[in-house]
């Protein structure tokens, strides 16, 4: 408790207050509240269908929440469209990366940098910086359709970075990656944080998120069931139950 209080003295960049979403009969997210502190990496965990992507989409403006509100740097995001939210300084990646076909890697990233400038030259220069940051310089002129799955993920991260966000939402960045690639992605995410960008990261792979996050929250059936430092959270019975089922927890107890 005291640890959390201490953290909350730090400036909150994102404050999610009681958001919910219902799809027909499914309550995908129910009155979810959490916050992100400036400069931290927050891991959002949860089993399949827990509502992580849905929560994400509500923050990014792709879905409207049924209840509650979301504050970004003290400002309500209510009724803002995804593009407005992007302009405010929140960028996101998608669970399924789809590059813009027919455009090269550099041009894909330029789409992102055009948010901050209308000049083609400037956008190109900015995009080039991002491509170098990703260490994809050699592929800058490759058609994005020809990339490997992992490079597409990196490219998507690059597009998001090009919008110069202060908060980055990442949905399942190492899904399907080899251990090597996962390592590279972890390295990249740390580099992004070092730029001063706050990160909310959804991840399935426990190991990745444990090493990377300053703090994790866990969703199950749309409800928040844990919030705290990674090592403490993984020991909570509720979390183990959600991830591994009752029997596993009973067996360990």
């Amino acid at each position: 408790m005291s640890a959390i209080e201490k953290i909350s003295e730090v400036k909150k960049i994102l404050d999610v207050k009681g958001i919910s979403k219902r799809f027909g009969g499914v309550q995908a997210v129910s009155t979810l509240s959490f916050h992100l502190n400036q400069g931290e990496i927050l891991g959002l965990l949860g089993p399949n269908g827990a509502g992580k992507t849905t929560a994400f989409n509500m923050i990014a403006g792709a879905l409207r929440s049924d209840t509650g509100e979301i504050l970004f740097e003290g400002r309500s995001l209510a009724n803002l469209k995804p593009w407005d939210i992007c302009r405010l300084g929140i960028a996101r990646t998608f669970q399924l990366s789809k590059p813009f076909g027919g455009l090269t890697v550099l041009e894909n990233v330029m789409v992102g940098s055009f948010v901050r400038t209308a000049a083609e030259k400037e956008a190109r220069a900015e995009a080039q910086k991002v491509v170098d940051f990703l260490e994809m310089g050699g592929k800058a002129h490759t058609d994005a359709d020809d990339l490997t799955a992992f490079d597409r993920r990196k490219l998507e991260l690059g597009r998001a970075l090009a919008t110069k966000p202060r908060l980055l939402l990442m949905d399942e960045v190492v899904a399907g990656a080899t251990p090597n690639e996962a390592g590279e992605m972890v390295h990249l995410v740390r580099k992004v944080r070092d730029l001063g960008i706050t990160i909310l990261i959804v991840e399935h792979v426990m190991k990745v998120i444990m090493g990377l996050s300053d703090r994790v929250i866990v969703l199950d059936y749309g409800k928040l069931i844990a919030d705290g430092p990674p090592k403490e959270v993984v020991r909570q019975p509720d979390v183990l139950k959600a991830y591994f089922g009752e029997r596993y927890v009973d067996a360990r107890a």
Binding site: W83, A91, F94, F100, A160
Partner: peptide, 12 residues
């Protein structure tokens, strides 16, 4: 044309 949702997320 490539990905409408993706474009929206990039400020379009």
């Amino acid at each position: 044309r490539g990905d409408r949702d993706g474009a929206e997320a990039l400020g379009v």
